[in-house]
Each structure stands twice: as C-alpha cells, then as structure tokens.
C-alpha cells in the first residue's frame, strides 16, 4: 500500500464521494461532494469512475507527501491549482507525486470546494457504503473524522504508473438565475412571497456551509404559519423559517424538518450554487419538470463524456520527469512547465 500523507490542511478538509444513500430513514444525511462536476473531473483525470471518493477542500488548500511509492493525482474545482515542490502544475492536468516531493493544493479561488483525486481511489474502508464524511453522524472520512496533519490515507499501488492526462473540458460558467421548481409547500406562502422569491435578488450570507446556505433578501411572508409537522427534506429545498429569510439546504442537511419549503433548486444547478461564496447575489427562476429533467440528463451526459476529453499531457512536469523520458540531457536546468512541441 502507498500512503498519501497529510502535512497540513484546513479544518473542514475531508473525504467525499457521491454520498451515503439508503439511511435517511434512520436519520443519516446523505452528505457527499458539494460539487459533483468538479469531483467527476478530478476522477476522470486519474481514470476513476466519476463518483469515486476524493479529498474535498473547503476554502483552504493543503500539503501532502507520499510514502511507499509514487502516486498519480489530480486536482479540480473552483480554480484550485496544485504545485509540486513549488512548481505549478497546469490546471486540469493529472500529475505524479514522487516520494520525497511535497504537493501543495492551493485554496479554491473562484468558489469554495475543490477536490484531490488519486488513481484507483482511496483504500479507506467505507462506512454504511460511503466514504463521505458527515460531522454529526460521525460517519465516513477517516473513522468518522475530517482530515488533519499526520493522517495517512492508504492508496492502491495498481494504476499509479499511468500516463498524466489533461482534460479539455471545463465547467461552463453559467450566470443566469438558479432554476427552481416550486413546492413542496408553496401553498404555505402568500402569492406576493412567491413573486418576491422569483423577482428579487438575494445575497448569500456568511452562514453558508455544507448543511445549508442562509440567504438575506426581502422577507417572505407565510400564509398559514411557519410550523409544520416534520416531513422529508431533499438537497436544494428552500426552507423559510419564521424570520422570512430563506435557507437553501445542502448535502449535510437533516433528513426531516419542520419549516415550510417554498421551492427546490433543481439538481443540475446545485453544484454551481454550492460554489457561490458568501456575499454573492442570486436570483431564482421557476421551471417546469421537463426543463429540470432535461438539465439533469445533460449533466449526466457531460459527466459521462469526460473521459473522451482526455489527452496525454503535453507538458513535462519536472526535470526528473524529462530525464526519465530521455527528452533532455542531464545538464539542462529545465524548469516546468515546459512545452516540448
């Protein structure tokens, strides 16, 4: 086994995959990667299936070494970039981390969540079928915990020798309103409140984390009170407590709750929303099921197509790498990235 060793990382750095399903009836949140697209990209770069567990960075990056062999790795999401011993790796490119080198994953720059994937996935025991860390359930991650300096993540030796690749596909930066479907409890709100939801601008407050994003904006008035007998919650539900200020519920949400939910962000727009930072202004647009399902299929197809956008890397990453391929003589002081075409 080869270990990926954590030298330093932010406090919320943890393992995430697609999520833990089948236990919501026992009160366990699904959790899972906040940006499925970025997770899929990092995984595609190292030849993994799209939902394979990876390290999720939240606002802050981290530093890593390897022990027992070299590792093939990739970083994707929110414009975070990797560097090896201080030399930047080109974005959306997989790379080899050799023993004795230090990998630094920079902080997510254009959003909040970035991913580090390792070829073959992490050889960490899943809990209840998933690697996804969930704080309140004490499940997933490394024995129910997030990552910290000194942790060793076992990786499989197979597959580490593969070719570094670059991905010629990126997340399309849409800027339009977030698409929602009204319901399940839109009838608990006045018609004016529905109009306000769909025609006003809301701001993502500093209270935004893996559980939910609190928004500030015009007060949404309830037509028949704000307490309901708890019912099921899904990712993207926009619940409105007594304050009239909506909260969009995210991956670490509870499984059931007692506030009316005015609308639900469609699944295809959740990752884009997750990457919006506190202070970002958002608008909502209501769509019908047909449009939401078409968008979900489009996202599924985009994720499935990622491997077809891979090409062998055109950059030589390190002097050592160039030497190993007999591309340059031993005396050349080559620094990467070096284009050799």
């Amino acid at each position: 086994m080869i270990d990926l060793v954590v030298k330093s990382c932010g406090p919320m750095t943890a393992l995430q995959d697609r999520g833990r399903f089948g236990y919501q009836g026992f009160g366990v949140s699904p959790s899972g990667a906040m940006d499925r697209r970025a997770l899929a990209m990092a995984n595609a770069l190292v030849g993994n299936p799209p939902d394979t567990g990876a390290i999720e960075f939240v606002n802050l990056g981290g530093a890593f070494t390897c022990d027992g062999g070299d590792l093939r790795l990739a970083v994707a999401g929110a414009g975070a970039v990797a560097s090896i011993d201080g030399t930047a790796v080109p974005p959306l490119t997989s790379f080899i981390l050799r023993e004795g080198q230090t990998l630094e994953v920079g902080h997510p720059r254009t959003g909040t969540f970035a991913y580090l994937a390792v070829a073959g996935g992490l050889a960490v025991e899943p809990q209840l079928g998933s690697l996804s860390f969930h704080l309140r359930s004490r499940l997933g991650g490394l024995k129910g915990a997030s990552l910290q300096a000194g942790n060793r993540l076992p990786c499989r030796p197979e597959g580490q020798a593969g070719e570094p690749m670059e991905l010629a596909a990126d997340i399309s930066e849409e800027t339009g309103p977030l698409r929602v479907m009204l319901g399940p409890q839109d009838d608990y709100f006045t018609p004016d409140s529905i109009r306000l939801l769909l025609e006003s601008e809301f701001t993502i407050s500093p209270q935004a984390d893996r559980m939910g994003f609190q928004l500030t904006g015009p007060k949404l008035e309830h037509a028949k009170g704000f307490n309901i007998v708890s019912d099921g919650i899904v990712d993207g539900h926009i619940q409105v407590p007594g304050s009239g200020q909506p909260i969009v519920l995210m991956r670490d949400r509870q499984t059931a709750g007692g506030y009316p939910k005015i609308a639900t962000v469609i699944s295809a727009d959740l990752a884009r929303f997750a990457q919006m930072r506190s202070g970002t202004k958002v608008r909502f647009r209501a769509v019908e099921r047909d449009e939401a399902v078409a968008a979900a299929r489009q996202l599924r197809d985009w994720i499935a197509s990622l491997p077809t956008h891979l090409t062998p890397v055109r950059y030589a990453l390190t002097t050592e790498h160039l030497l190993s391929r007999n591309l340059i003589g031993g005396t050349v002081d080559a620094l990467s990235p070096v284009s050799h075409d």
Binding site: V180, M181, L182, P184, V229, D231, V234, T264, S267
Partner: peptide, 28 residues
C-alpha cells in the same frame, strides 16, 4: 407534492396521527 426534479412527497395529512403514520409505513 413535488420536491424538485429528484424527489416527491406523498402527504397523507398534516398532523401527528397514528392512522396517518400507519399509511405512510404501508406505502413505504
């Protein structure tokens, strides 16, 4: 009740009632 494109809720009533809960578990 629609819950976005990925879920729906079948609502039997709005109160805490053993009869409603028995229907929920039956449908489940």
């Amino acid at each position: 009740l629609p819950c976005g494109d990925s879920a729906l809720t079948v609502e039997f009533g709005s109160t805490i009632d053993p009869a409603l809960n028995a229907m929920v578990l039956a449908l489940d």
